[in-house]
């Protein structure tokens, strides 16, 4: 199974990750190798096998409905580079 340039572009779009033109060929080659490699999985039958999402057979623990957090905006927003009126700035969103 090979991955072509268009698929690379689609993956780059879906994952919102700019790929430099010079990188495309390398990524194409390596991704093809990786997918070829994982294609080994197709060699084994998994009929009637339940998929496993978690290593332990446990169930979800639930939290009691309580407010435990207090406002720490000022401190938290020190990691953000653009803040205005307490809000995080992004390039204009068009719905």
């Amino acid at each position: 199974m090979s991955i072509n340039k268009d698929e690379i572009k689609y993956l780059s779009l879906l994952s919102r990750m700019d790929i430099d033109k010079n990188e495309i060929k390398d990524i194409e080659e390596k991704l093809t190798k990786i997918i070829d490699f994982v294609d080994q999985l197709q060699t084994i039958s998994t009929d009637n096998i339940a998929p496993m999402a978690h290593p332990l057979n446990q169930s979800q623990r639930l939290r009691i409905d309580e407010v435990t957090e207090t406002n720490d905006r000022e401190n938290i927003q020190k990691n953000a580079q653009q803040i205005e009126k307490g809000m995080y700035l992004v390039p204009k969103v068009i719905d």
Binding site: S12, M17, D26, I35
Partner: peptide, 18 residues
């Protein structure tokens, strides 16, 4: 994201996305 991630991370993200 293109600037922030290195090549291996990008490959894994793309593999995972795929």
């Amino acid at each position: 994201r293109g600037e922030g991630f290195g090549a291996e991370v990008k490959r894994r993200i793309m593999t995972g996305t795929y």
